[in-house]
């Protein structure tokens, strides 16, 4: 089935949005002290790397960054086909840290719920904040992002994809109808 593709954000717009998010994170957290980034595999992980770089450009500090895989925390085992599982890789303690959880697209909120459970199993952060490149609505859980690249109302059956190049750098966001 051929789908109609619309580019929502181009490369420049994505970079601009990420830079703005980086500034907002620093502003809200008053710098980089105790700040860590955790990206949700795999898109959020790539974006967290971008944010880490941008924060370093602004503040000259490389904040710790980790990866979290939420497969083990999903609530749909038995109704999904893909059972592949990635690895969680967080090589620093989360206790008393300010954790910015990063994902590419926010939809139902179930992934974020799983990610928060996963994070809490790993330690007790001072707080968890949520950074999202695209918020497309249709929440099924009371979850609200702290940093948003772009709000984009969508229909339920549409699809949003963040495109990455081979170096895992985001180059655009597309909408599939």
């Amino acid at each position: 089935m051929a789908k109609e593709v619309t580019e929502i954000l181009d490369n420049t717009a994505v970079q601009r949005a990420l830079m703005r998010i980086a500034h907002e994170i620093l502003e809200r957290n008053k710098g980089t002290e105790d700040l860590v980034l955790v990206g949700i595999r795999t898109g959020g992980d790539y974006l967290a790397a971008q944010l880490q770089q941008k924060i370093a450009e602004i503040e000259g500090v490389k904040v710790p960054r980790g990866t979290i895989d939420i497969t083990m925390y999903r609530d749909d085992l038995g109704s999904r086909n893909d059972l592949a599982m990635g690895q969680t890789d967080i090589r620093f303690p989360l206790g008393d840290r300010k954790v910015v959880l990063v994902d590419d697209v926010l939809f139902t909120g179930r992934t974020i719920r799983a990610a928060m459970d996963a994070l809490i199993d790993l330690g007790r952060p001072r707080n968890i904040q949520l950074a999202i490149l695209v918020d497309r609505g249709h929440r099924e859980l009371p979850i609200r992002p702290d940093y948003i690249g772009r709000n984009l109302p969508t229909a339920r059956d549409e699809q949003i994809e963040v495109d990455f190049n081979e170096q895992h750098v985001p180059v655009g966001v597309s909408l599939f109808k």
């Binding site: 895989d69 497969t71 083990m72 925390y73 999903r74 085992l77 599982m85 990635g86 690895q87 969680t88 890789d89 459970d117 996963a118 199993d121 790993l122 330690g123």
Partner: peptide, 17 residues
């Protein structure tokens, strides 16, 4: 391999099952 990481945690439990 993915599950191995859990066995080194302080809280060695995930809600998968």
């Amino acid at each position: 391999e993915s599950f191995k990481e859990i066995n080194t945690r302080k809280i060695k439990k995930v809600p998968t099952l």
